Amino acid sequence: MLDVMVNDEYKLTSDGMQIVIMRKHIVDPTKSPIFDETKHSAEMREEWKTWKYCGKVEQALEVILRQRVFESEAATLKELHNEIVSFKREIHGMLGDSQ
């Protein structure tokens, strides 16, 4: 089964019919309304949760890029452009493409 890290926040898996984008979440158990320090660990943990579904790997990468744009803190078009180009280079580098 597919299990590919895109970066430290996203990975791609599959369920046999589609590509599944998994997104990393940091869980703070002390924020839970049922947290009881005598019964539970207060240690932060990392969880991967299903985030979106796509038909193709290329579509999944575009969805991730779009989300990064939505969450960008760029203050100018130039900064945003640089972030987009940087992500595309990162992907091409992982794929072994020259660009």
Rank of each mutant, 00 (worst) to 15 (best):
T76W: 01
M44K: 15
E58I: 02
S72R: 07
I64L: 13
V27C: 12
T76P: 05
I26G: 09
E79S: 04
H40M: 08
T38C: 06
P29S: 05
G55Q: 14
V63C: 09
E71Q: 11
P29R: 15
A74C: 06
F35Y: 15
L61E: 00
L65A: 02
A75P: 08
K39D: 11
S72W: 02
F35A: 13
T38Y: 12
V57A: 13
Q59D: 13
S32P: 06
K39V: 13
A60W: 00
G55K: 15
R66N: 14
L77K: 06
K52P: 07
E43G: 08
S32L: 07
S32K: 14
E71V: 00
K24V: 02
V27T: 14
S32C: 06
A60G: 04
K31P: 10
K56F: 00
E73S: 08
D36Q: 03
E79Y: 01
W51S: 08
H40K: 09
K49P: 00
W48N: 10
I64C: 04
T50Y: 12
C54V: 07
I34K: 15
H25I: 06
E46P: 09
E46W: 05
S32F: 06
K24P: 08
I34A: 12
I64R: 03
Y53E: 03
Q67D: 13
F35G: 05
E62R: 12
E62S: 10
V63H: 03
R45K: 13
E47S: 08
S41C: 11
